[in-house]
Amino acid sequence: MSDLMGTILDGILLGGLYALFAAGLSLIFGVMRLVNIAHGDLIILSAYIALVASGGLGLHPLVSLVIVVPLMASLGYALQRSILNRTLGKDILPPLLVTFGLSVFLQNALLQIFSGDSRLLHAGGLETLHVDLPAGVAVGVLPCLMFMVAVAVISGLQLLLYRTGLGRAFRSVSDDQEAAQLMGINNAHLFGLAMALSLSIVSIAGVFLGIRTNFDPSIGPTRLIFAFEAIIIGGLGDLWGTLVGGVILGVAQTLGAKINPGYQILAGHIVFLAILTFRPQGFFPKTR
């Protein structure tokens, strides 16, 4: 029994990581209706940047975020202003194609530079630290930290979107791009800021991913799928819903893995498909 509770707890906490994968993707889709197919690969890119920063400068991977976050944010702004803004318009196909191309490019560039060997970010024992809870359940410090960071990131995003002028601008552009220009908003710049914000969250997700599991250049697309699943299960447009979606996905995966280690990914997909069938709008859809 305590074994089962431990598994479920692991799944819930894993949901925090999936929410971190998803939050940036959701933000970009919300603000500019852009589906970023390269999102997963950008997560892996951040993990590699953290690998270089922590290896080269001897920083703890979490401390390396002081380098990774600004670097990825700048990359996001530049990418949006130079390439992605040109793909936005009435047709939804160009951004899909261009970000798909970016995904292929990133995977191959990382393969070229770092080879296909699996890597891991060494966090000085943080990976294995445990706290013993009553009833014989043990819980990892790292998963707890990931979950708390996910809650903090989502709270921060909510505050930004609903309590600041910048958030108001993001929401108005999301509603009506032409009317937003009449407010004096430079949409191209605002989209750049949204992408910078998205890739800042991606950096945090990438570093946690790299501490938690092995990574290599090919695993980005699977992270993208997890992010999509968390968003759809939670209901499009609601960030707390995305966290719940991540938790449902995480629990499904850890329970699946408990039945048979090979079922981990499959169990997540099955639960996702079941929800898509019976509640296609997700649990907390934000209808406007």
Binding site: R171, S172, D175, E178, A179, A180, M183
Partner: peptide, 18 residues
């Protein structure tokens, strides 16, 4: 062309964006 996801006051405030 008011912004539907903004409140009335937020719609006014976004006018002062510049």
């Amino acid at each position: 062309r008011l912004f539907p996801s903004l409140s009335v006051e937020e719609n006014l405030l976004i006018g002062a964006y510049g």
